[in-house]
Design a protein around this nucleic acid. Structure first.
Lengths: 208, 208
DNA sequence: GTCTATAAACTGATAGAC
DNA sequence: GTCTATCAGTTTATAGAC
């Protein structure tokens, strides 16, 4: 592993444990085993490490083959979605699970949760990438199911999106408060619970 | 208002905006208009201000006449609960709304959310008072409704408690990320949305 | 005599200069 | 790498108010 990558990993590790502000460049340098000034050969400012970390995170999602395949496009003619929304969810959930099982990604996730109120970069990242975009995505999910009469017409896609999405966010918050290092079993459990949850919601609103 | 109260209010205000660690005693003293050593005539340590703030918060709930009345006891023979769970919820919700409409309490709430990962006191307060206790309360709520056959017997009270409770926590998180100062309209909206939410859940699981 | 405010000084951590 | 200045929370002694 080259130095830049080591700076990346050490920074992420420290940030996700102590928060961005409370970690000094000196600390990072010490842990990597280089001099503080040497960091500037790779990152010209502390903030750029943070931005690099976020880029890495979003890249993971933007380049995920499954999540970006035609099969997963939220369009009104997506047969996989309309015929079996439970399976549609399950497949997507598995793809996300694979990503969050990678230690780096989980650490970034935790970093976002613990630092969103203390850093403008992280706050806006949370607001856009963790709140607004996913809520739009799930609103679309339910809107199409409603349009195509898979779920009842007296439902509100926007409310259902919140009904669904508040649950996994709550579980993540719970995990990050409970654990410093999150065991794989908790991650597995997280995906099991969210799957039970979507089944519950779909069962409530599906046209029988 | 006496000095101790002014220290309390100024501290709460600063803590809820900048977080506990980033506020110095000097800052508090300056804002109050006294010298920092004078704070020690009222609080023998910075941490005791924080503890006082939490005590104030829990006292509000423990001394609320309505929430602690017989009418609100979660027992299997509570007629108000069994005959009209929606109204039971509504009354409790109104009581909590009154509390959160008091600026101090909302600030304390925000303080807890923004600092839970950075201070052991706050983290354990969040874990116990915001996560564990309310989840137990709502588990009881659904457990009794299930026992008394108000809701279906194939439901899981613990899951329903999470289904319900994750939603308001999500909304609070959303509010604290969005606003520095939360407008009353958002608080009103919060209680409207949570009420819609419990109606949705109850409608899903009630024996028809 | 008790309560409150303040000045001065101590200690530990840390950031910047050299 | 070491030195130094600074700032954090805290402690103590003291002075004044009631």
């Amino acid at each position: 592993m080259n130095t830049k990558e080591r700076i990346f990993d050490v920074s992420l590790d420290l940030f996700s444990k102590k928060g961005y502000d409370s970690v000094s460049l000196r600390e990072i340098a010490d842990e990597v085993g280089i001099k503080k000034s040497s960091i500037y050969s790779h990152y010209s400012a502390k903030e750029l490490i943070l931005i690099d970390i976020f880029e890495y995170f979003t890249d993971q999602f933007e380049n995920n083959d499954l999540l970006n395949s035609k099969e997963f496009l939220l369009t009104p003619d997506n047969k996989a979605l309309l015929q079996n929304p439970e399976m549609f969810y399950h497949k997507g959930s598995q793809a996300v699970k694979e990503m969050l099982s990678e230690k780096r990604n989980l650490k970034i996730c935790k970093l976002i949760f613990i630092q969103m109120h203390h850093n403008e970069n992280i706050r806006s990242f949370f607001k856009n990438e963790i709140l607004i975009k996913p809520l739009m995505h799930w609103t679309n999910f339910f809107r199409i199911l409603k349009e195509k009469k898979v779920i009842r017409k007296d439902t509100d896609p926007k409310l259902l999106a919140k009904e669904y999405y508040s649950f996994p966010i709550f579980l993540l918050l719970e995990m990050f408060v409970k654990y410093d290092d999150i065991p794989q079993s908790s991650i597995d459990n997280f995906f099991d619970e969210t799957e039970d949850h979507i089944l519950f919601i779909l069962d409530c609103v599906k046209v029988k």
